[in-house]
């Protein structure tokens, strides 16, 4: 350390080599996609529950690729929902307001549950929309 600047670089993460688990996960995905195609059975995989390290996850993400749909859900931090290059496989990442990854899931489904409007909310919407129309009409009269 002869330079005037004292450079201290403490490694905060150690890039791990891939474990070769990706192949196994792909096989599991195939099973579920087959089920979805045949009987419409949906499935969710919590990526944190699998013995995948970060390098594995990035590899899996690259292998599956990106599809045509990408949705951002903004509620207490963003959630990114992307259909992968394989139809029916959706990659979901929930982030906290400060961009910390809270949960990472793969859903095998025609359409992820969290994007759909809930029937109860739609009932409520009827009520709210009526109220909006009322306010709008009364506003015009004044």
């Amino acid at each position: 350390m002869n330079s005037s600047k004292l450079a201290i670089e403490i490694p905060l993460e150690i890039a791990e080599p891939t474990t070769g688990m990706v192949q196994a996960v792909l096989r599991e995905l195939l099973e579920h996609v087959e089920l979805l195609a045949e009987s419409g059975q949906q499935h969710v995989i919590d990526l944190t529950s699998l013995p995948l390290n970060d390098s594995d996850k990035r590899e899996l993400e690259n292998v599956l690729g990106k599809g045509e749909i990408s949705v951002t859900l903004s509620t207490l931090g963003d959630s990114r929902i992307i259909e992968t290059g394989i139809n029916g496989i959706w990659w979901i990442k929930h982030f906290s307001p400060n961009e910390k990854l809270l949960a990472e899931l793969i859903e095998i489904t025609p359409f992820p549950e969290i994007i759909k409007s809930h029937p109860d909310d739609i009932k409520q919407a009827v009520f709210e929309l009526k109220k909006l129309i009322e306010i709008n009409e009364s506003g015009e009269e004044v």
Binding site: T48, S49, T75, A103, L105, H118, D120, D121
Partner: peptide, 14 residues
């Protein structure tokens, strides 16, 4: 409801 679902998803995951 979605915030809610997100909360539950992250709780279940953790």
């Amino acid at each position: 409801r979605r915030t809610f679902l997100k909360f539950c998803t992250s709780m279940a995951s953790v």
